[in-house]
Amino acid sequence: MIFPLCFALFVVGLYCALTKRNVIKIVIGLAIMEYAVNLFLVLLGYKKGITLADAQAPIIEPVTNLDDFFMKAVDPLPQALVLTSIVIGLGVTALAIAICIRLYQRYGTFDISEMRRLKG
């Protein structure tokens, strides 16, 4: 149930990025898509049949009971992936916003339909 919801969020972001005319809103749409995928990745880490309340953080300490750990712990790999993907998303967003600022300086507007120098 929860995976289709993630995908719905992804589609919402895609819709926002493709149909909005304000450049900032387009960037927000991209961010929503990015976060939908991140959410999906984090949710992938939960083991089948373990409820959210039972799941453990994947940290081994000297006192950890390993059998219990292997049963319940969340897969740590998607979390590392999400961290990386957040950093990448940050880079893209920063660059996009920088370009938006520059576009505003040149065109004096945030409306994408008024930026039409390139044709053909």
Partner: peptide, 22 residues
């Protein structure tokens, strides 16, 4: 180059490119 056309092209490329990456 930071001129009108370049920024516009780059923004278009960025939006489509990051949709692709996602």
């Amino acid at each position: 180059g930071c001129e009108h056309e370049e920024l516009e092209a780059s923004f278009k490329y960025l939006v489509l490119g990051s949709i692709g990456s996602t």
